[in-house]
Computed example of a mutant assay.
Amino acid sequence: MKAYIYQNKSLKRFVHWLIMSPVRTRPRWYVRMLQFLYVKRGRGSVIYSSVRRDLVPFRRCSIGSSSVIESFSALNNAVGDLFIGDHTRIGIGNTIIGPVTIGNHVNIGQHVLISGLNHQYEDIEITIADQGVTVVAVCVADDVWIGGNAVILAGVSIGQHAVIGAGSVVTKDVPAYSVAVGNPAKVVKVYDFSLNCWVKV
Rank of each mutant, 00 (worst) to 15 (best):
A3Y: 13
Y4L: 09
I5H: 04
Q7C: 12
L11I: 11
H16Q: 09
Y30V: 01
Y30F: 14
L37G: 11
V39N: 00
G42V: 04
R43H: 14
G44I: 06
V46Q: 10
S49N: 07
S49L: 03
R52F: 07
R52V: 11
F58W: 15
R60G: 07
S67P: 00
N76F: 06
N77Y: 08
G80M: 10
D81E: 10
D81M: 10
L82Q: 10
L82M: 10
F83H: 13
F83C: 03
I84A: 07
G85E: 00
H87Q: 05
H87L: 02
G93H: 06
I97V: 13
G98Q: 03
V100I: 08
G103Q: 00
N107S: 09
I108H: 02
I108F: 02
L113Y: 12
S115I: 04
G116A: 13
L117T: 09
N118G: 10
N118M: 14
H119K: 12
H119C: 11
Y121H: 15
I124Q: 14
T127K: 13
I128E: 15
Q131T: 15
V135D: 01
C139P: 00
V140A: 03
A141L: 02
A141H: 07
G147D: 03
A150E: 07
A154M: 13
A154L: 08
A154F: 13
G167N: 15
S168Y: 03
V169A: 13
K172C: 12
V174Y: 01
A176H: 07
A176Y: 03
N183F: 05
A185N: 08
V188W: 05
F193Y: 11
L195F: 04
N196H: 14
N196S: 15
W198R: 06
